[in-house]
Every structure is written in structure tokens, then in C-alpha cells.
Design a binder for these strands. Structure first.
Length: 145
DNA sequence: GCCAACGTTGGC
DNA sequence: GCCAACGTTGGC
């Protein structure tokens, strides 16, 4: 299983809205960036991802999983743009802020820090564990730790 | 709301 | 295929 991070501006699409979709999940449409799209093409069913609120909040608020692999983006006729679906799995008991991530040496190479503008990004296994620990969630059971 | 960073577009 | 202009993202 691989790990990822999705950014969203909460006033456009928030974690609350994502959770409201439940197990049905929701298309992660609107991505118009090749790098981000290419990462989505690599995603497999069941891959897990952090859900990050950009612009407002600036923190990782929850964990989601890929519920549908790459398909065409229904919001455009331009066939270059594809996307996946994700569904909410669990809240972060303690949301992990960008500030905390930046202050953590072992996370200095995280894309969230190094590729500020990339809205869909890969997360390394070690980074996943560290952020889960900071967020007080057990990465296996997804129960508060 | 500003502005730096950076991806994309389009003229040559 | 270069690069200037332009648009967008996102932290502050």
C-alpha cells in the first residue's frame, strides 16, 4: 500500500463535506496539474491518504482511502484530466499543522514542505508513521492512539 | 489581500 | 524549443 496527501481549500471542499459522502466517496476532480494527475494515476484501490486543509486551517485533519482508481474527470471534456475517488476513513484525533510538520526534522523532506504548491503528493512510509504518531492515531487500526 | 513561487501558454 | 508573460496556488 502506498500513501498520499490531498490538499483542499476547506471553503471549496472540506473534510466535513468529504465525511458527509461516507463510504460512497467522492471524485477528486478539478486537478489541472500534470504532476498531481500523474500521482493519481499511480494510486491503487485502498491506498491511504492524508486530507490537508490549505489556505485556512493549514493542518492534516483526517485519513482517507482511494475508493476508485483513475478515471476521466467528469467536470471537463478535456480528456487529459483524470482523477480518482476517495472516501473518508477517520478523523485525526489531533490535527497536525503545517507548523508542526515544518518544526519536525524528520519531516523536512515531506512534499508538503518542499513542494508547497503541489496539491496531490506522495507520502513516504516513515512520514506516514511519524504524522500518525503526531496526530495521535494508530496507523493500523485507525483508532485514537 | 499581498506576493513569491512556480506551472502553463504562446509568440517567435 | 526557448523564454517572457500570464495565471494560480497557498502561506503569511
Amino acid at each position: 500500500m502506498r500513501y498520499w496527501l490531498f490538499k483542499s481549500e476547506p471553503f471549496k471542499w472540506s473534510w466535513e463535506q468529504q465525511k458527509a459522502k461516507g463510504d460512497a466517496g467522492e471524485e477528486w476532480d478539478g486537478i489541472r496539474n500534470y504532476q498531481a494527475r500523474n500521482f493519481m494515476r499511480e494510486m491503487k484501490l485502498g491506498d491511504r491518504a492524508f486530507f490537508y486543509h490549505s489556505n485556512e486551517g493549514l493542518e492534516i485533519v483526517g485519513i482517507a482511502e482511494v475508493s476508485a482508481e483513475i478515471h476521466s474527470d467528469s467536470t471537463t471534456d478535456d480528456e487529459r484530466w483524470e482523477c480518482v475517488d476517495i472516501r473518508a476513513l477517520a478523523d485525526m484525533p489531533n490535527p497536525v499543522s503545517l507548523k508542526q510538520v515544518k518544526a519536525t526534522k524528520s519531516l523536512a523532506d515531506m512534499s508538503l514542505v518542499t513542494s508547497m504548491r503541489l496539491s496531490v503528493q506522495p507520502v513516504k512510509d516513515e512520514e506516514w508513521k511519524i504524522v500518525c504518531a503526531m496526530g495521535s492515531i494508530d496507523p493500523d487500526t485507525l483508532k485514537p492512539a
